[in-house]
Amino acid sequence: ANMSKLEQILILDPPTDLKFKGPFTDVVTANLKLMNPSDKRVCFKVKTTAPRRYCVRPNSGTIDPGASINISVMLQPFDYDPNEKSKHKFMVQTIFAPTTITDTEAMWKDAKPDELMDSKLRCVFELPSE
């Protein structure tokens, strides 16, 4: 079940689909912009259903109030099959930053489900010709 009750505070651009334009013989990068419209600092971390297929930089961090950051999602080369629709998904999990962050690992571990917010994105592969 969807554990998160809080509405995602960050604005994602793109909001739902990460588009990767081939050819896929080399690394293909999609950009994901995270904007923080709130007056609080927000911690985020990126998760995916296919961790070995992508490099994500940065894959976690903190966004100041009113600030935004760009994330590079780099799809590693693979043998593209036009008939195989990508089932890869990404999740941007967020939490309002505690006043003092001593240990981010512990912060995420101890976070209660109703403090967590998340957004899911699909991956869409396109060939230049399509």
Binding site: N2, K45, V46, K47, P51, R52, C55, N59, S60, F90
Partner: peptide
């Protein structure tokens, strides 16, 4: 949305 997907921490390098 009930999602049956398993999510893992994304890596900053493979």
């Amino acid at each position: 949305i009930l999602s049956e997907d398993d999510f893992y921490d994304a890596l900053s390098q493979t």
